[in-house]
């Protein structure tokens, strides 16, 4: 087979392009952490604007629907990557722990600091709680969509 350096370089470029496609269409695309980050960012502040029982119902409906979407999305994803850039269950296990600390610590800490419930308390907690998911999701998304061929 006759392949000159230019052709070989083109083949390597084709390989790189194809490999980035894998990131874009697999769990490494960052969509799941991004969506969960956005959901937390939008759902938790409802406790600041709605009465607690209604906010709780709305919160659990949104979380339930997102969990259903997550299962469907994961089932339909067309590429299972060779290497995961994050281990989904581990990420959410650690994040769950972090969320519990932020929620309990945030509620008690802010109430102690302001001698009562400060305005937008749950919005502040939502931003802090969602930040790691949004950061990880955004980094993965950027990596999967970068164009440097």
């Amino acid at each position: 087979m006759d392949v000159d350096p230019k052709e070989a370089a083109e083949s390597l470029k084709l390989i790189e392009q194809a490999q980035q496609v894998v990131s874009r269409h697999s769990h490494n695309n960052g969509v799941i952490p991004l969506v969960w980050g956005i959901v937390i960012l939008l759902a938790l502040p409802m406790y600041d604007i709605l009465p607690p029982p209604i906010a709780s119902i709305a919160f659990f409906i949104i979380v339930g629907l997102t969990a259903f979407w997550n299962v469907m999305y994961a089932m339909r994803i067309p590429v299972q990557p060779w290497k995961w850039k994050y281990k989904g269950p581990f990420l959410f296990l650690w994040w769950g722990l972090y969320y519990a600390i932020v929620l309990i610590g945030g509620v008690s800490g802010l109430q102690w600091l302001f001698h009562g419930k400060p305005p937008f308390m749950f919005t502040i907690i939502a931003v802090v709680a969602a930040a790691p998911l949004l950061y990880i999701g955004w980094r993965l998304w950027q990596e999967a969509h970068r164009r440097e061929m």
Partner: peptide, 22 residues
């Protein structure tokens, strides 16, 4: 070495498994 086969192999090399339709 043929481009289509090289693309197939490149995608598969980074994956555990890939959907035919994809």
């Amino acid at each position: 070495h043929q481009p289509v086969r090289l693309s197939i192999m490149s995608i598969l090399a980074q994956s555990k498994k890939v959907d035919f339709a994809f």
